[in-house]
Design a protein around this nucleic acid. Structure first.
Lengths: 208, 208
DNA sequence: TGATATATTGAATATATGTTCAATATATCA
DNA sequence: TGATATATTGAACATATATTCAATATATCA
């Protein structure tokens, strides 16, 4: 044999990641169908042909990316769920961090855009559709339970917890989508405006 | 001449509308690029070739639809602006109607989806890009002014009015996008949850 | 009815692009 | 260094699909 297995594995994974990053950039900008293999290859700085040594098809890259994106949002929701605070504080903290992330992390915006894009098209690979069916609702369910606990705690407003969870994620998602295509210099977001949808205002304890 | 001009005009416009409706359905489901001329023609119940007697290209249909969609949202925001009530009540009423529309009007959901799709892709016709640049911000500006007036009136919460307007529309848009791809039987939306982001709660005067 | 303009069709054409492949380069290790 | 496995390239191939077009149908009016 010519090269150590482990070394090959590592190099392969590095190159695959480079391709994924390039593809994410292009998919987010143009969408799955308008993105040509040539676009991805150029963005990654390689020839078209080489791409097929790492991925069998454009669809396969897309599926990989969707899977990553969904897992990221699920992980984020789990880290909120597992916080060692009361449910009201979980909601507050999550919104504070999410708004901050929208303002500062391009990767987060890209993740939101990709999921929204995929969720809103029937013309994506079947495997991607299945992943969405399987994973998309988990963050909604996590927040729903926290809302429910918050109502028992007395810190979250009344109303169907499922509805509150929908408002929670759709506000964040709508904001992320807006931010990814607008230049928002000069507008500083105050997460508390969103938080006030869900939290019973005692004395608004803010850090500014 | 063989047929009266006016009659021809009317027939032409009717047929064009039939094509637009079919195209909207397909664009919203699949996106501009994944939608084939054949899909639109089949949806409209005509042959591919006939489509080109009414529109010069797929892009031209898309531009027409985007223009319609943008005009609709602008009109909606103007009708709120021109209400004969105070700014706080304008915000309340607009949200009540918008949430109701999200729950009941497929056309509204399609409109939101199309605009979001277009806004989030650089791979759309140049003319569509220009329309978006030109028209997209108008509803944001309208709501921004109402927020400002509401703050003076004492019914709207403090904070950058531009930011409040962004929260207003991104919440509605995020919700619409979610609703267009989720079966939400069993969840009744309460617009007041969103309204509480913007309105200073006196005594929540609700109709239920 | 006949003349004329428009509507309609579906096959033909042109083109774009996803995928394959033969050729070449490069890296590792014995 | 030579053997071998993998990396890399870009041209070739196959296919899908936007658009065109020649042929035919249909409607209106004189």
């Amino acid at each position: 044999m010519a090269r150590s297995k482990e070394q090959n594995e590592r190099m392969r994974e590095t190159r695959k990641e480079k391709i994924r990053n390039a593809a994410l950039l292009q998919f987010v900008k143009q969408g799955l169908f308008a993105t040509r293999i040539q676009d991805i290859a150029a963005e990654a700085g390689i020839a078209q042909g080489l791409l097929y040594h790492y991925y069998a098809s454009k669809d396969e890259i897309f599926v990989d990316l969707i899977n990553d994106a969904l897992d990221k949002t699920i992980e984020a929701s789990y880290s909120v769920r597992d916080m060692e605070t009361g449910p009201g504080e979980k909601i507050r903290f999550a919104l504070e961090k999410l708004v901050e992330t929208i303002e500062h992390s391009q990767t987060f915006l890209d993740t939101c855009r990709l999921i929204t894009q995929a969720t809103n098209s029937t013309a994506i690979p079947l495997e991607a559709q299945n992943l969405i069916l399987e994973k998309r609702n988990i963050p909604y369910q996590v927040i729903e339970k926290i809302m429910e606990a918050g109502q028992k705690e007395g810190t979250v407003v009344a109303g169907d917890p499922k509805m509150l969870s929908i408002f929670f994620w759709t506000s964040i998602n709508g904001l992320a989508i807006y931010y990814s295509t607008n230049d928002n210099r000069g507008v500083k977001l105050d997460y508390w405006v969103i938080a006030s949808m869900f939290l019973i205002e005692t004395e608004r304890e803010r850090e500014e």
